[in-house]
Amino acid sequence: MKHLLSIADLGADGIEEVMRVSDSFVEVSERAIPRVPALRGKTVVSLFYEESTRTRLSFEMAAKRLSADTMNFSVSTSSAKKGESLRDTCQTIEAMGVDAMVVRHSSAGVPWQVRSWVDCTVINAGDGWHEHPTQALLDCYTIRGSRGSLDGLRIAVVGDVKHSRVARSNVLAFTMLGAEVTIVAPPTLLPPSLDGWPVAVSHDLDNVLAKVDVVYLLRMQAERQSEALLPSLREYTARYGLTRKRVDLLPEDALIMHPGPINRGVEIAADVADLPRSLITRQVANGVAVRMAVLFLLLGSEPRA
């Protein structure tokens, strides 16, 4: 495989392969000098048209630990501010001789467009509301680390599914690996159509929590109030937030996850995020190893053209 645009491109076998390779890169990350020469001589460019801290740093660290050269293109310091088109920017960067572009954009579909304009590997680091495949991979990897497998697990994805690239990729990944997914949200924060989504839907979080192995919370953005999607964040928290009281409804061993950055007190109570069963920091740590695996699988097996 040359590109990673949608998690669907990988399929269940591809996800399993990424997870197997991630195991060895977790081991690398634990070394005194956490670096291997696997991608020496390769150049990975981060093309970020949207603010991001963790994803950009995670990819950069992953590339560096594989000994790749890294470059950063972020919109605030770049020619995009001077009016250069996306296509021109991509082709200019490719002309410098890069092996992979890691693309983040606030508009859905941009990585697909970039792929049509350049010859190098393209990795989707999040496109609009659409997909965030490496987040799905690191989440699957994190669940697998705690539970051994996703097969048969019951996972609740809670919150703003409509505007969430994490939800779109994760629903695909979780279900491909055999989990049963229930999405829990007010109707205004669901996609307009769920035809073809292999999920159950609920508007009653309390009822769902007792029957899950993992509760996966999505970030709630304050501007949803002004779009008439919610009366208030306060009402959202009351009905859909993971409060301390709701944690008691969860089975003993159920896990709590969140892609970050978290809004403490909105979708998750401050003390809940820090409970031992919360995997939020583990997700971040695993992100580097999983992205090393992705870069290695896409770039490591073939000699540079």
């Binding site: 659409h130 307009p192 159509s193 035809d195």
Partner: peptide
């Protein structure tokens, strides 16, 4: 168009 495809593709639709 707002519907199955807009929901899947993460693009805002018009009904």
């Amino acid at each position: 168009h707002e519907g199955e495809w807009s929901s899947r593709l993460g693009l805002p639709g018009q009904p």
